[in-house]
Computed example of a mutant assay.
Amino acid sequence: MKMKKHVANGVALILKICLVTIFIMPFYIAFAYALKSPEETMKTGLAFPKQIYWENFTEAIEVSNFWTAAKNFFTITVISVVLLMVVCSMAAYAIARNMKSKFFQSFYYVFLAAMILPFQVVMLPLYIQLKDTGLLNTRIGMILTICGFQLAYKKFVYVGFIRNIPLEMEEAAYIDGGSKLYTFWKIVFPLMKPIVSSTLILNSLSVWNDFQIPLIIAQKPEVRTIPLTQYFFFGQYSIKLNMAFAAFVLAMIPILVLYFVMQKRIIGGVMAGAVKG
């Protein structure tokens, strides 16, 4: 019996090590190539660099106009995430509390249908519309497009969460004379911290890593985002692999910081014990 238990523990440990290795390898490869010189890359492959080549980072910043792209991307990400959080939470609250109404039900099912609409279907009409309205090659055009394509899923998630929030707390606020807007921001929204934190990180990751929308909309260098600048490291006849990985490492740092800062809010159960009895 003890032998079987030891074997099972050994197998579980090996599987855990394999999984950790699989998840860590992309980060290792990124840092290894970002810190190597082109000559060492040709000779050593995936081995860690013997000598750190910091010039990859400086050259990547200069070639890709990294700080302009980072400024564009940071602005687009922050505004898009805040807009999605405010609009989706308020719209989801209205839908969740009025599901018996056919009007709000129709909105809910429209959002569900929009979730299965692929970007490629509306890519050409979107380009023409943005061009006609003067929003092509603008930050506003990218923000509106990104928010439009993420609204459906985020509202679906928020609606499911809000429907589990007890009505008793809202009714108490109404008895005290609170309006619906006051009740939402002071009672309901604070209880949504777990789902808001989760969607905040998911939205940030989605916007930060988005490539398709900037590729269609941001054609001028001054409005390009970080993933789009990395694309230009891979030419038809040459590949600047080390600089591409250096730019990738620089772009990865902010989103990792955000995750480590917000992970406690995701794991914590703020809803626990909100209503008793």
Rank of each mutant, 00 (worst) to 15 (best):
E222S: 14
P254W: 06
N242Q: 10
A218T: 02
P221F: 03
M271N: 11
L228A: 04
I267P: 06
N242A: 03
A218I: 01
M271S: 10
P214R: 00
T225E: 10
L256T: 14
K193W: 07
S238I: 13
W208E: 01
L205I: 14
P227Y: 09
I226L: 15
Y259K: 10
V257P: 04
L200A: 13
L202E: 09
F245E: 03
A244R: 05
I266K: 09
G235V: 01
A247G: 02
Y259H: 10
R224W: 03
K193A: 13
N209M: 07
P254E: 05
I255G: 05
Y259D: 01
L215E: 00
A247S: 12
Q236N: 14
V223F: 03
L205M: 15
Q236H: 12
Q230A: 12
L250V: 04
L250Q: 04
G273T: 02
A251N: 10
V270H: 08
T229C: 08
I213C: 03
M271D: 04
P227N: 10
I253V: 14
G273S: 12
L241Q: 07
F211E: 04
P221Q: 03
S198E: 09
M271K: 08
I239S: 13
M243Y: 03
L215T: 04
G268D: 13
K264I: 08
V275I: 15
I216P: 00
F245D: 03
P214F: 00
T199E: 14
A251S: 14
N203D: 13
F233K: 03
A244H: 03
V275M: 09
Y231G: 04
F234A: 13
Q230P: 06
L200T: 15
I216W: 00
P214H: 00
I267N: 13
F260W: 13
K193F: 10
P214N: 01
S238G: 10
Q263A: 07
R224Y: 04
Q219C: 01
I226E: 00
N209V: 09
Y237D: 07
I216R: 00
M271R: 08
I195Q: 09
S197E: 07
Y237H: 14
S206A: 14
I216A: 02
L250Y: 01
A272M: 08
N242R: 02
